[in-house]
């Protein structure tokens, strides 16, 4: 399993609506912020790349030292972004695809305001389980 894996969901309006440190390394708060900063900085690159392909999985779009930024962009331009040190691409694609299904279910809830933070603890539990499985 990846020792570093920071997963962030960013709304169409560039606002983070979910974050989770899902790597195996012990969690450190300042490191988490550092990771989120890196991911946020990659948003412009992601935006340009998203318009060049019909695929949702964009693979790795940026690097930062030995860390890689992999991205998945949904039909509604919600970005799933993963900062990680492992190199298993298949695992990452599967992780994104399964999170995508969870995200759609959250999104279909008429009482969920699109673009707002995902507060469901079930969602968090399931995402972390998927990370353990695929990353």
């Amino acid at each position: 399993m990846a020792s570093t894996a920071c997963f962030v969901i960013v709304s169409k309006n560039d606002i983070p609506i979910y974050e989770a440190e899902v790597g195996s390394a012990p969690k450190k708060e300042d490191l988490a912020y550092h990771h989120q900063f890196i991911l946020h900085a990659a948003l412009d690159v992601v935006q340009d790349l998203a318009w060049t392909t019909n695929a949702m999985f964009l693979r790795s779009v940026d690097r930062f030292n030995d860390l890689v930024v992999s991205v998945y962009v949904t039909a509604g331009h919600t970005r799933f972004m993963l900062l990680h040190d492992s190199r298993s691409e298949d695992g990452i694609k599967s992780f994104f695809q399964e999170v995508h299904e969870l995200y759609i279910k959250i999104f279909l809830n008429p009482l969920y305001l699109p673009g707002s933070r995902i507060a469901s603890s079930h969602f968090d539990t399931k995402v972390r389980a998927l990370a353990r499985k695929y990353l």
């Binding site: 998203a50 695809q97 995508h100």
Partner: peptide, 25 residues
């Protein structure tokens, strides 16, 4: 509100996760 949801659901379910990038698409 319906349109936003329909976009996410149908691109996933009916279009095999194809994200449209062109106007005609």
């Amino acid at each position: 509100a319906v349109g936003a949801r329909v976009l996410e659901l149908l691109c996933h379910r009916e279009k095999g996760n194809r994200r449209e990038t062109r106007l005609l698409g």
